Amino acid sequence: MSKQSPTILALDFDGVICDGMLEYFQSSKRTYQKIWGSETCNIDDLASSFYRLRPVIEIGWEMPILIRALVLETPETEMFNNWSNICQKIISSENLNPKEITETLDAVRDEWIRTDLQGWLKLHQFYPGIIDKLSKVLHSSTQLYIITTKEGRFVKQLLEQQGINLSENAIFGKEVKRPKYETLRYILEIKSEIPKNIWFVEDLLKPLQLVQKAADLEGISLYLAAWGYNTEAIRDSLAHEPKIKLLSLEEFTEEFAKWP
């Protein structure tokens, strides 16, 4: 293995490999309707705002809450600047349970997949060049892992539709119930690797910062996917995060030696 290539490449799924924005909104809309019932407003009219605000979401169950915040006419600027508090306020004031929202969202997806698999799959678009890159990695000595807050079964199904066959042991989804930095630690332990041999690509800054704070993970190469669900302000903030590199989609699809 060249020192210019990782032994292990760990990737987030949504916002790095796959753009599921259309599916996010439709699944969130269906979940919203199950929780809150009919509304006087047309939820479809909120789609463009939902797409713009998607970068504030850290965990899937927050997506129906985002629609709720839009229905309640919460200003977009306020949500960009203070989403966590707004989300928790809605949860508290409306006596909601994140676990129950998660179960409802998963049930919506399960039913959709069961009754209209092709329709569900069509709402997911893989970023240009991503599938070719994954195929090359799978045919190399670099080991590929997916670390995501999406259900692993959904990830596996979507990848298989594109001819990318990963074992269940290589996909760490929401069901593992642990932060991404702990999953990286686990992978390093089971593979008996050292941090400098693993590269991690994520489109959210917070998970990268948490890896950076873990002393035993120092040396992992950290990359923020510029094409994912983040904002220009987040990308600009990397000027103060020298150990986290901004990675373009073009760079991602290149040979590892050409990465920042």
Score class of each variant (00 low, 15 high):
1 M>N: 11
2 S>Y: 11
2 S>T: 15
6 P>N: 02
7 T>N: 11
7 T>I: 12
11 L>Y: 04
19 D>P: 05
24 Y>M: 09
25 F>I: 03
31 T>V: 00
32 Y>C: 00
33 Q>F: 01
42 N>E: 14
44 D>Q: 07
45 D>C: 13
47 A>W: 13
49 S>Q: 15
52 R>P: 00
57 I>K: 04
60 G>Y: 02
65 I>S: 01
67 I>C: 02
70 L>R: 01
73 E>C: 05
75 P>W: 03
83 W>S: 08
84 S>M: 02
86 I>H: 03
88 Q>P: 03
89 K>G: 06
91 I>Q: 07
92 S>M: 14
93 S>G: 04
102 T>I: 02
104 T>D: 01
104 T>W: 00
105 L>I: 02
106 D>N: 07
107 A>W: 05
112 W>Y: 11
118 Q>C: 10
119 G>Q: 09
122 K>A: 14
124 H>V: 10
125 Q>A: 13
131 I>G: 00
132 D>N: 14
132 D>C: 06
133 K>H: 03
134 L>Y: 05
141 S>R: 15
149 T>D: 04
157 Q>A: 10
158 L>Y: 06
158 L>K: 04
163 G>N: 13
163 G>I: 11
165 N>R: 07
166 L>R: 03
166 L>P: 02
168 E>G: 04
170 A>C: 10
170 A>Q: 13
172 F>W: 13
174 K>A: 13
177 K>S: 08
178 R>S: 14
180 K>W: 10
181 Y>C: 10
182 E>Q: 15
184 L>P: 07
193 E>I: 12
194 I>R: 11
198 I>M: 15
200 F>T: 13
204 L>H: 14
221 S>D: 03
225 A>Q: 10
226 A>D: 04
226 A>L: 00
229 Y>T: 00
229 Y>H: 03
231 T>M: 09
234 I>T: 15
237 S>L: 07
239 A>F: 09
241 E>I: 08
242 P>N: 02
252 F>G: 04
255 E>D: 13
260 P>A: 00
